[in-house]
């Protein structure tokens, strides 16, 4: 297993109340898998993504990534894990607006301490993977939405991470551009990358080999994408029996 979450909890103290953003999540993801995380707004998808990505520290439970227990690591160690093991693709691109595509893609490699030459080579290779090597010197404002998201994906790929994390990667894109990005993920999956992707679009989740459904910080469904993707549509209906049951 690449990812092993055991009884992960993430609690927030809001005034006198305790919000359980993640309420005992246990989950395993193997190397090379492509998993979609779905669920209603506020169900804990982003929180889970941040925990998996080592951006956020769980308040309880055990998280083993690539054989290393990260739930008890200090801030510097987490930063290094993020740098080496994780490739983030954020919902709203999160590119540095004043830097070129190339410089943006090089950024994680800078923090790895690579030489300028190595950085450049790896960044160009990553931009080639997303077919954007003809826009290297453009700044984000000079790119279309789909192109920006591809730069963001190239940045996530550049450091050759064990794990690619994408939070709503098509959320800000029109459907045609979104399709283009999904094709790219399919391709990357085909190349053997491990991908965890948060989405609220059932049509996208349905195309993933595996989907996990969250509700109120708990896993309530885990199975093939087609099955889990439409689960919530069935729930409010008058015939609960028709809903596909999570495995």
């Amino acid at each position: 297993m690449l990812i092993e979450l055991t009884d992960i909890r993430r609690e927030y103290q809001v005034g006198t109340e305790v919000v359980h953003a993640l309420d005992g999540v246990s989950l395993g993801i193997a190397r090379g898998e492509w998993v979609a995380i779905v669920g209603q707004s506020g169900s804990g998808k982003t929180t889970m993504m941040n925990v998996i990505g080592c951006l956020d520290t769980p308040t309880g439970g055990r998280y083993v990534l690539n054989g290393k227990d990260v739930s008890r690591m200090n801030d510097d160690e987490l930063a290094d894990i993020r740098n080496k093991e994780i490739g983030f693709v954020f919902q709203n691109f999160q590119l540095l607006p004043r830097e070129t595509s190339l410089a943006n893609v090089e950024l994680p490699l800078v923090y790895r301490g690579l030489s300028a030459k190595e950085r450049r080579e790896k960044a160009i290779a990553a931009l080639k993977k997303v077919k954007l090597d003809n826009r290297m010197m453009h700044k984000p404002t000079e790119l279309s939405g789909g192109q920006r998201q591809r730069v963001a994906i190239a940045r996530a790929l550049a450091s050759e991470p064990s794990l690619l994390l994408a939070d709503e990667p098509t959320g800000n894109l029109d459907s045609a551009t979104g399709e283009e990005i999904i094709r790219l993920f399919e391709e990357l999956h085909g190349l053997g990358h491990t991908i965890v992707l948060v989405t609220h679009e059932p049509r996208l989740a349905a195309r993933c080999p595996r989907a996990v459904r969250l509700s109120d910080g708990k896993v309530i469904g885990d199975g093939p994408g087609q099955d889990v993707a439409w689960q919530d549509r069935a729930q409010p209906s008058a015939h609960p029996a028709e809903a596909p049951v999570a495995s």
Partner: peptide, 16 residues
């Protein structure tokens, strides 16, 4: 702030 968040997410340590 966001730039700082991005840098931290991509592996910048506090002291960096």
């Amino acid at each position: 702030t966001r730039e700082i968040g991005v840098r931290r997410a991509l592996g910048a340590r506090k002291r960096t």
